[in-house]
């Protein structure tokens, strides 16, 4: 039964997440409440690792979540389920390629999906904030990275590296739980 849920949930993510890697995050977050295949902490770890390894973030996270659920087989199955809907849709629309992006319905749907996708990501971001910013040390790191974002572009490697070093230093000075 878990096999069926794994396939259907990732098929749904592939079908409904439009607009690139981060669009899958709200769906993966939703799965925590529905199935408990992994925890919120594991999801943020997964996102960070996905950013540091080769491949599209969405694919990486599907593999990761599938692995957490059903091992190696689950990882492969979740990934294939994720990319299957877009494969089918592309085969289907490839005959009307030239007109697809100018189609009234396609344009209207995309117009609405952008703000909705943005809102979903905002909502997950706030949930992550609530579960991660539980100490003064954590809050200080957040503020520091926030200030840094005015100076540096969106480079995952830089932010993750600084945060990891900070985590290590806090542990060194036993500050993590203040």
């Amino acid at each position: 039964m878990i096999l069926f849920y794994l396939i259907s949930e990732f098929f749904k993510i592939g079908l409904f997440s439009i607009g690139g890697g981060y669009a899958t995050i709200p769906f993966l977050f939703g799965l925590i409440n529905d199935y408990g295949w992994y925890t919120t902490d594991q999801l943020t770890n997964m996102i960070a690792i996905s950013m540091l390894t080769p491949g599209p973030v969405g694919v990486n996270m599907a593999t990761f979540a599938g692995f957490k659920t059903l091992g190696v087989f689950g990882g492969i199955l979740a990934t294939v389920s994720l990319v299957l809907p877009s494969y089918l849709i592309i085969i289907f629309i490839s005959k009307l390629l030239k007109t697809y992006n100018n189609n009234f319905y396609v344009k209207s749907v995309l117009y609405a999906l952008k703000p909705a996708g943005c809102a979903l990501l905002c909502s997950v971001m706030l949930s992550f904030y609530k579960s991660h910013i539980t100490s003064l040390a954590a809050f200080l790191l957040l503020v520091f990275l926030f200030l840094l974002s005015f100076k540096f572009k969106k480079n995952p490697l830089l932010y993750i590296f600084i945060a990891a070093v900070y985590g290590f230093l806090c542990q060194f000075f036993h500050l993590v739980f203040i």
Partner: peptide, 25 residues
């Protein structure tokens, strides 16, 4: 402890994505 910090970096990276999407959407 390394990953404790990394979770917070993820929040900032999501914030930067939201900011980009915000302007476009």
């Amino acid at each position: 402890t390394l990953f404790w910090g990394v979770g917070i970096a993820v929040i900032i990276l999501m914030y930067l994505t939201v900011k980009e999407m915000w302007a476009k959407s």
